[in-house]
Computed example of a mutant assay.
Amino acid sequence: MNAQNSAAFMPDEDLMNTILCDLKRTVREYATAATESACPAVRRVFNTMTMDTLQLQGDLYTHMSQMNMYPAPAKALRQDVDKQLQTAQQMQQQTGQFVQQKTGQFGSSAQNAHITANGQHQPSHLM
């Protein structure tokens, strides 16, 4: 297809926006596939595909931004970014603790006792 036919089909900006949206969707699907893969080799393949697609998406975004086809997002306040980061870190920590509890990594004593602020074990029925 030559440049003349391409322009008649769809303006470049619309075409690039369509491709950009498709790349974003593809990244989500690859990430989902990676998280659902039971086979480590398959998981690695999907991780690689995710990263490659993210790179391609970033390159396309940069090109579109340089051509003023994609407006830059509004600047975020540092305090808002810090708050979101803190919330995500807390959620990650809570999730890790939950998984450890459910997989028995704390040992059997942790199931029957809680550790107090001074580090001493206290039976759960006293709490």
Rank of each mutant, 00 (worst) to 15 (best):
Q86W: 10
T62P: 01
E13Q: 01
R28H: 11
H114N: 04
V27D: 06
T18V: 12
M127F: 09
L60W: 01
T26L: 13
F46K: 04
A34W: 07
D52W: 08
R28W: 10
P40K: 07
R28D: 14
S109K: 05
Q93L: 14
A31F: 12
N5W: 02
A74L: 15
R43E: 00
L54W: 10
Q86T: 14
T103F: 09
A113Y: 03
Q4C: 06
D52N: 13
Q100P: 02
Q84R: 13
F106T: 03
A8P: 06
A74N: 14
V45P: 04
R28P: 06
M51W: 15
T18W: 09
N17I: 00
T26E: 15
M67A: 01
Q93W: 07
K75P: 10
R44Q: 10
Y61R: 02
T62N: 09
Y61F: 05
D14N: 05
T95S: 15
N68F: 04
N47A: 08
Q122C: 02
I115N: 00
P73N: 06
N68D: 07
A38T: 14
A88K: 09
Q94I: 03
L60F: 02
L54I: 14
Q101G: 05
G58N: 07
Q57M: 02
N112F: 03
K102H: 11
A110N: 07
D14H: 06
T87F: 00
N112K: 02
Y30H: 11
M51C: 14
G107Y: 05
Q66F: 01
A8E: 12
P11W: 03
D52L: 06
Q105K: 10
V99Y: 10
M49V: 05
M49S: 12
Q92C: 11
V45N: 12
M1Q: 12
N112C: 03
A74V: 14
Q94R: 09
A31N: 15
M69S: 08
M10L: 13
M64L: 01
A31T: 15
E36D: 09
Y61A: 00
S124E: 03
Q111N: 08
Q94H: 09
F9Q: 00
A88Q: 11
G104P: 02
F98H: 04
C21I: 11
Q100C: 04
